[in-house]
Amino acid sequence: MDETPKDQPIIRISGLCKYFDDFEALRDITLDVNRSEVLCLIGPSGSGKSTLLRCLNFLEAYDGGEVYLEGDLIGWRSAREAPRRPLSSEKLRRQRQHIGMVFQQFNLWPHMTALENVAEALMHVKGLSKSEATTKARAALAKVNLSDKEKNYPANLSGGQQQRVAIARAIAMEPSVMLFDEPTSALDPELVGEVLSVMKEMANEGMTMVVVTHEMGFAAHVADRVAFLEEGRLVACSPPSEIFGREPDDPRVRAFLKTYRERNVV
C-alpha cells in the first residue's frame, strides 16, 4: 500500500450508498478522515452508524460510491465497473489487516485464552513465529493493562477486560485505522471508564480512530470532529465545540442532543 502524503486524508469516502434490499441505509455519504484524527459518529438508533463503519472494512459491501484507504479502493476491484466485482478474498484480507475493528459485543473467541486471542492473527496472518507472536501479543495486552490476565479465557474476564482484550487483538496487528462500534454499550457503567481511558490513550498516541458512540462526553472531549447521521444521511460534521455548543446550527442535531443535555452529560 502506498504511503499517502501526511496531509492527505487517510480515509476518503465519497458518494457512499448502501441498500438492504429496497431500504436505503446510507445515502450519498461524503467524508474524509485525516491521519491521527479521532472522528466520532453519533446519531439516533437505526441512522446507519454501524452500517457506515462496516462499509469501511467491507463487512458490508457498499453499493455505490467509493471508500479509499490510503488511496486503495476498499473491497471492489474497480469503482467504474458495472456490475462491480469484489476483490479476491486474498486481497481483501490484506486490506483488512490495516483496519482494526472493535465490536459492541467484543466477539472474543471463547475457546482461546486472552493471549491466544491476540496471538492468533499474528501467527496466521502476519506469519510470525510462535515466540515472536507471543512477545507482540504480550506487549499489546500490556498496553491495555491486562498483562496479568493473559491466561484467562473470556468466560473468566469481566466485560471491560474482554473489550480491552478485543482492543489488544486489533492493535497488535498494527493497523493504520481503528474502527469502534459502540465499544462501551454492552458494559456495566462502572466498567465503561477503563475502556474509554485505553481509547483516549490510543488517541493521544496518534492512532486514527472512527468511533460510533453514545458516550457524548468522550465525543466532546476526545474527538477532533463529530459526524451526525440521520436516516442514512450525513447531516453535520464539525469540531465538537460546534456540535455540542450551546446552539448547534442544525435543528436535527439540536433535537438529538437535547435529551442528552437534559441528563446533563455534555
Partner: peptide, 12 residues
C-alpha cells in the same frame, strides 16, 4: 460476530 472478528484481523 466471532467470524466477523476473525475476518477483520484477516484470517482466511
Amino acid at each position: 460476530g466471532q467470524v466477523e472478528a476473525a475476518r477483520c484481523v484477516g484470517l482466511s
